[in-house]
Simulated assay, not measured.
Amino acid sequence: MKKLQEFAKNYQAEMNWEIRTDNYERTRSSLLNNYMLLTTEVAEIAEELRKAFNHTNTLINDGMDEDGAFETAKDSFRENIGKELADCIAYITKFANYFEVDLEDSFYQKMEEVRNRKNKDVGVMKR
């Protein structure tokens, strides 16, 4: 993850896509804009899932068993979902780099926190 964050930092600088830091208003505006772009990418994941489920239902209606239909749909939409996930990671790393957050350390710390919760639901990841 550290290598990914470093790559993203350099790539975003090369593309002139960093969060602006000229002054408070530019920084605030840049952070909000990037947050909106991140939420757009998350919505695009949902759109790809919707397409995959619709494709699954079409295959089921054409006589394929549910599991086979879903596996076929997963194969068909894997690349697009991967691209949308990558877009999300790009924005998440941008925020992490701006706030000087080590995503790898934060991830493992958060997972340990969740593991040790007293009120956790079994089999469900909650924030």
Results as ranks from 00 to 15, higher is better:
residue 101 V to L: 12
residue 54 N to G: 11
residue 82 G to I: 09
residue 112 E to Y: 02
residue 104 E to R: 05
residue 93 T to Q: 07
residue 67 D to N: 09
residue 23 N to E: 10
residue 7 F to E: 05
residue 90 A to I: 12
residue 51 K to F: 11
residue 101 V to M: 06
residue 117 R to Q: 06
residue 116 N to D: 07
residue 30 S to E: 04
residue 65 D to S: 15
residue 34 N to F: 00
residue 8 A to F: 05
residue 35 Y to V: 10
residue 71 E to P: 00
residue 61 N to A: 15
residue 7 F to A: 09
residue 55 H to G: 05
residue 124 V to C: 00
residue 126 K to S: 11
residue 29 S to C: 05
residue 78 R to F: 11
residue 23 N to Y: 07
residue 95 F to C: 09
residue 51 K to T: 03
residue 1 M to Y: 06
residue 80 N to M: 08
residue 6 E to G: 00
residue 56 T to V: 05
residue 98 Y to H: 15
residue 66 E to V: 12
residue 113 E to S: 02
residue 22 D to I: 00
residue 17 W to M: 13
residue 114 V to C: 01
residue 34 N to H: 09
residue 4 L to A: 13
residue 78 R to H: 08
residue 86 A to H: 10
residue 68 G to H: 03
residue 33 N to E: 12
residue 83 K to L: 11
residue 112 E to F: 03
residue 32 L to P: 00
residue 75 D to F: 14
residue 46 A to C: 14
residue 96 A to V: 08
residue 2 K to I: 13
residue 65 D to N: 14
residue 16 N to F: 02
residue 25 E to C: 04
residue 91 Y to F: 15
residue 101 V to E: 02
residue 41 E to R: 07
residue 108 Y to W: 13
residue 37 L to K: 10
residue 73 A to R: 01
residue 44 E to K: 13
residue 16 N to C: 04
residue 123 G to Q: 05
residue 77 F to Q: 06
residue 15 M to H: 09
residue 35 Y to K: 08
residue 84 E to I: 11
residue 30 S to A: 12
residue 81 I to F: 06
residue 60 I to S: 03
residue 34 N to K: 12
residue 31 L to G: 00
residue 19 I to S: 04
residue 24 Y to W: 09
residue 106 S to L: 14
residue 17 W to P: 00
residue 92 I to E: 01
residue 45 I to W: 00
residue 118 K to A: 06
residue 45 I to N: 08
residue 57 N to G: 02
residue 29 S to H: 09
residue 13 A to Y: 01
residue 110 K to H: 09
residue 84 E to C: 11
residue 52 A to I: 02
residue 64 M to D: 02
residue 108 Y to R: 10
residue 55 H to I: 03
residue 102 D to Y: 07
residue 93 T to D: 08
residue 18 E to V: 03
residue 28 R to L: 13
residue 66 E to T: 10
residue 37 L to A: 15
residue 36 M to G: 14
residue 64 M to V: 11
residue 63 G to V: 09
residue 57 N to P: 02
residue 90 A to G: 13
residue 40 T to F: 04
residue 120 K to P: 01
residue 63 G to L: 06
residue 87 D to P: 04
residue 52 A to G: 12
residue 126 K to F: 01
residue 100 E to T: 14
residue 22 D to K: 14
residue 64 M to W: 00
